[in-house]
Simulated assay, not measured.
Amino acid sequence: MVSFVCDHCGKCCTSIGAYIKIERQLSDRDYYCKNTITGEVFPVHVVPEFAEEIDEEVISGAAGSRSGCIFLRRNPAGPGFVCAIYPTRPRLCREFRCYHMVIFNARGEPAGRMVGRADIRTADPVLARIWNDEVKPLPSPTTPRSDPAWLERVCAILTAHGYRGEAVEGGTV
């Protein structure tokens, strides 16, 4: 098993983050938010460096016009994005994985990632062909992690062609 490693692209926060809505502001750094998919209400605490910026958006009403999560911010220390409520982020965010398997070539180098239910992201044309011809036709599970037999079957197909698939477990977003 390989560990999930977030590359801070922000795509998850612009998609699933759209379902995180502020219900009530408690202080300049504390809010009650709601996951509009599950109805779960949870408290969040904004890290100090983003508190004023988020507070201004909430007061001005700009928070409601965002297409993604209000707590997603550009990383001031480098490329990508960061979460302004990372230590108190909701379960939806803690459990999210944007890829479920890393596929390695014969040299042990990462050659692709399985995303979604059974899609692949790869620049390797041979791996793309194998995936489209042999893996895609398999009935896909609701979630790859929920069907170990499906993952074993996919790994066997990859191994037969000189690749190695490793399911992603743990890690933090």
Results as ranks from 00 to 15, higher is better:
1 M>Y: 09
2 V>C: 07
2 V>P: 04
3 S>H: 11
4 F>W: 07
4 F>S: 04
5 V>E: 15
6 C>D: 05
8 H>S: 15
10 G>K: 13
15 S>Q: 13
15 S>P: 04
17 G>C: 01
20 I>L: 15
20 I>D: 06
22 I>W: 04
26 L>C: 10
29 R>Q: 09
29 R>V: 10
32 Y>V: 14
34 K>D: 11
40 E>F: 06
41 V>L: 06
43 P>T: 08
43 P>Y: 13
46 V>K: 12
49 E>F: 10
50 F>E: 08
51 A>S: 14
52 E>R: 05
54 I>A: 07
56 E>V: 13
60 S>T: 08
61 G>P: 00
62 A>T: 03
65 S>F: 09
72 L>M: 11
75 N>Q: 14
77 A>S: 00
83 C>E: 02
83 C>I: 00
84 A>Q: 04
84 A>I: 02
85 I>T: 03
85 I>V: 12
88 T>R: 11
89 R>L: 08
89 R>H: 07
89 R>G: 10
90 P>K: 03
94 R>S: 09
96 F>P: 10
98 C>Q: 05
103 I>W: 06
104 F>T: 03
104 F>P: 03
106 A>V: 01
107 R>F: 12
110 P>V: 15
111 A>V: 04
111 A>D: 01
112 G>M: 08
112 G>S: 05
113 R>I: 11
113 R>L: 13
114 M>K: 00
115 V>M: 15
118 A>L: 09
118 A>P: 09
120 I>S: 08
121 R>L: 15
127 L>K: 06
127 L>G: 04
128 A>M: 10
130 I>C: 03
131 W>K: 00
133 D>Q: 14
135 V>H: 08
135 V>M: 13
137 P>L: 15
139 P>Y: 04
140 S>F: 03
141 P>G: 08
147 D>C: 09
150 W>E: 08
152 E>C: 11
152 E>H: 13
153 R>H: 08
154 V>G: 02
154 V>S: 04
154 V>Y: 04
155 C>P: 04
156 A>M: 05
157 I>W: 01
159 T>E: 13
159 T>I: 02
166 E>K: 12
168 V>M: 10
